[in-house]
Design a protein around this nucleic acid. Structure first.
Lengths: 182, 182
DNA sequence: ATGCACGGGCTAACGTCGTTAGCCATAAAG
DNA sequence: CTTTATGGCTAACGACGTTAGCCCGTGCAT
């Protein structure tokens, strides 16, 4: 459960990642430039290349971090209310909307799988898979729903007065496998 | 039903938009630069500014075009199989996956609403709304599902062997409002 | 016929971006 | 005491979006 970065990264590299995270979360993706990142650490941009091969490598660490936090959040939700799709959906939604820029960075391009701690991607997906009763297709559809809701909201695609909580409830309920009734 | 660009744009501007579309679809978003776009038309990049105020304005036209095509495709699917959510989902999926770069451009940032033909956004949304029996929340959830499926697939987020057709069917069925049974 | 506006090209240049090359100081290790 | 790694630095390159300013042709008004 301990974060997987302490041993994979040198202390200075961790400084850089955490400055990058702050920059991204506070000012958005266009502020995350190598020069701004250097400024924040009191060094010049080229010096960053002593610690990371390129900007993508820094971003990969942010993605790993985001994935790890998602896993933590979903596991906590599962522990609190085992087997509930709506509980996972709510936890996913809260975390994503609390870190919009990090969420986008993590989701809007192909995952840099080679640069990720092994098993992390699977771990983030597992709670929903379990809540869907092991139905892969249902779990994928539910994940797509949750991701779609977050990203459409972040992009301001829903009408202004839209009651998104109701849309979330409607969707999450549609993906809850029937345990007893009907 | 006629495309809404013929009268809004000068012929030269339409040339530019269509070159931009070709560039984007053939070579992806990083190829869509003002210099490359100029090359394709046999002119220099600064000359493009005689026709559009900036790159975002060209992209806005691409977005309008994409939205218009989506509306056309969904209306056709609705006409062929009225009231069917799965039919709309299938049409949405096909069109999006046939034009991945255009789809991303259209969806992964806030809509430039001020630059869009009025009513276009609504028109693209209407068929799904109708198929959901006028249930706004259901329609939003269904849209989120479809968008999520497309974008997660485009980003290679599903496992390699995943049967996405089944995931689509599962999700689309979950959003089909009950007309008679159960 | 002459003058003029204007549409639509051009070159040169600016500032920002990621990135590379190459230099130098400090500190640990032989 | 010398060497080697670590981690800074400056200068610079090429690509990006964009601006300023020039020029040539067409068509209309005087």
């Amino acid at each position: 459960m301990a974060d997987p970065f302490t041993d994979r990264l040198t202390p200075r590299a961790r400084d850089i990642v955490s400055a990058a995270r702050a920059l991204l979360e506070e000012e958005g993706p266009e502020a995350l430039t190598m020069r701004r990142l250097g400024d924040r650490l009191g060094i010049k941009a080229p010096s960053l290349y002593k610690h990371f091969p390129d900007k993508a490598a820094v971003e990969s660490e942010l993605i790993a971090l985001s994935l790890w936090e998602t896993a933590e959040v979903l596991e906590a939700a599962e522990a609190a209310d085992p087997g509930s799709v709506p509980a996972l959906a709510e936890a996913y939604r809260r975390h994503a909307l609390a870190h919009p820029h990090l969420y986008r960075l993590t989701t809007e391009r192909p995952l840099p799988r080679a640069a990720l701690p092994p098993g992390l991607e699977y771990r983030a997906a597992a709670p929903l898979f379990r809540a869907c009763g092991g139905d892969e297709d249902l779990a994928r559809a539910a994940w797509a729903f949750a991701h779609g809701m977050v990203v459409l909201q972040l992009n301001g695609r829903f009408p202004d007065g839209a009651d998104l909580t109701k849309a979330w409830e409607t969707g999450a309920a549609a993906f809850q496998p029937a345990t007893a009734d009907c």
